[in-house]
Design a protein around this nucleic acid. Sequence first.
DNA 1: GGTGCGATCAGGGTGATCCCCCATATACAG
DNA 2: CTGTATATGGGGGATCACCCTGATCGCACC
Lengths: 216, 216
Amino acid sequence: MSAPAPTVVIVDDHALFRSGVRAELDGLVEVLGEAESVEEAVRVILERKPDVVLLDVHMPGGGGVEVIRAVSDKAAGQRFLALSVSDAAEDVIAVVRAGARGYVTKSISGEELAAAVRRVHEGDAVFSPRLAGFVLDAFAGEVVAGDIDPELDQLTMREREVLRLIARGYLYKEIALKLSISPKTVEAHVSAVLRKLQLSNRHELSRWAVERRLVD
Amino acid sequence: MSAPAPTVVIVDDHALFRSGVRAELDGLVEVLGEAESVEEAVRVILERKPDVVLLDVHMPGGGGVEVIRAVSDKAAGQRFLALSVSDAAEDVIAVVRAGARGYVTKSISGEELAAAVRRVHEGDAVFSPRLAGFVLDAFAGEVVAGDIDPELDQLTMREREVLRLIARGYLYKEIALKLSISPKTVEAHVSAVLRKLQLSNRHELSRWAVERRLVD
DNA sequence: GGTGCGATCAGGGTGATCCCCCATATACAG
DNA sequence: CTGTATATGGGGGATCACCCTGATCGCACC
């Protein structure tokens, strides 16, 4: 337990919060730098190469996920600990998928945060108790869903109905029967969906739907 | 930190190891019982309802995964901490998929094990440092696979290659280009796969592949 | 040396998909 | 009233998917 203090970079768009974290962690970890935007974060992280990046999930310009993506392209081994007010499952899932090795809420104490940083630095996975369930449940294959989607939003109700059936592998004929319309109308709806989502065939459409967990 | 000692049941087919764990945990957690087979484990767990089940992964009669499945059917909230000599990714993935909330190797010390039990009891997720990477990498969408599947087993290597590409939505032409063979040969392989798996079109094939986590 | 299997390919056919054009009715906003 | 969006349809055609019946070659097994 006499390991040297791990080094961190704090990424958050709120200066007040950054200095709060810095003060709380004083003496427990070594703060190498701060950043308040995605671009600045990427630059600072690549420059200072901290043991762990404390990363806010919600930020203008893409959020924590973008930071992880951009940094991981250039420095594969970088470890991230997500730090957020949100305990929404989608946020946790998204940032973990991107590559974060931990996720804690901002209600954490300074000592707990320092401990979490140490554990992430050692390669461990850290999750707030109430979040561990989300992550592992999602990993176990459960459905999460339930959020709003700007891409899905531009589709009309009828188009979404057709999309759902297409994604389940039904033929135009079968969909026409189910909806009591002509196969030609189904075709028209499918074309509209493909155009709006910028996809080129029903296979891509199926994958699109599965990725957004609209079916299966 | 003055919480009452959590209660555990130890499941392992080696009596020597069970008593070792019991001795190491003495005074730190309360051992409610032991089991040395899948059947006994299910019975003891449902009877004693421990806070955490310390579960060996490799056991005659199905191993830890079977225990988790059987118990979860009857007592949904039960928490499991997998304890194994193996640090193979497939073992970790399998047991976490089944529902374990943690996984540590048997090289762990008594104090560390007690701490892990406490954290799992509190709802936290616990992984040995070198295992955390496996689990999160797999969750991030990487391929793990490597297990045996009687359905997949009847496919030849070439057929599996084609299956993978079909499930990803490629056209016969595109697959032919990727594999440097004729579209007609691709067609032949697809037909063989559909026949062997008793499916009728590429949509069902995609769903089949996704369910078995061969793609996506 | 036959027998079987895997991998490669061809021709021909039917149905499905997807694209383009087009038209109609309804509803809603400006 | 006029334009726009939505839902509904049709014709025609190019491409794709799937199935069938073939074939050749190599390799392993008995």
